[in-house]
Amino acid sequence: MPVNAIKPYNFPAEDTEANFHGARLVYVGWNRHLMFATPYAWPLPPNMPFGALTQGPMAGAFAQHPDWEKIDWSVVAWTKNGEPFTPDYEASLAENGIVHKDSLRFTTPGLDGIGGLGQ
């Protein structure tokens, strides 16, 4: 619905991809690991291999959790914006169809947080 205003109300979106110097924003959250209060946000090059995301920025943030080193990436389940998503770890983000501001979540079956309590 349009904004009620006394003059024409048209302003550009603040967070278009063009404003991020060649990167696109990607959000990643680890399901049932609530020790990490929120998903994280990273500006990533579209040609970055998906595997470089998991072993790079994600490892930097999530490796503090004792479950991280036990992850079997072959059974990890992903969603993208709430829909099931099967990434090709060798392909780039762009080739995987990951666009600017996509929100990814992953579940690690069998690894259920501190004490198995989802933390």
Partner: peptide
């Protein structure tokens, strides 16, 4: 001590 190493989604 645990400290967040990424920036949060908002």
């Amino acid at each position: 001590p645990f400290e967040s190493a990424g920036m949060p989604m908002q």
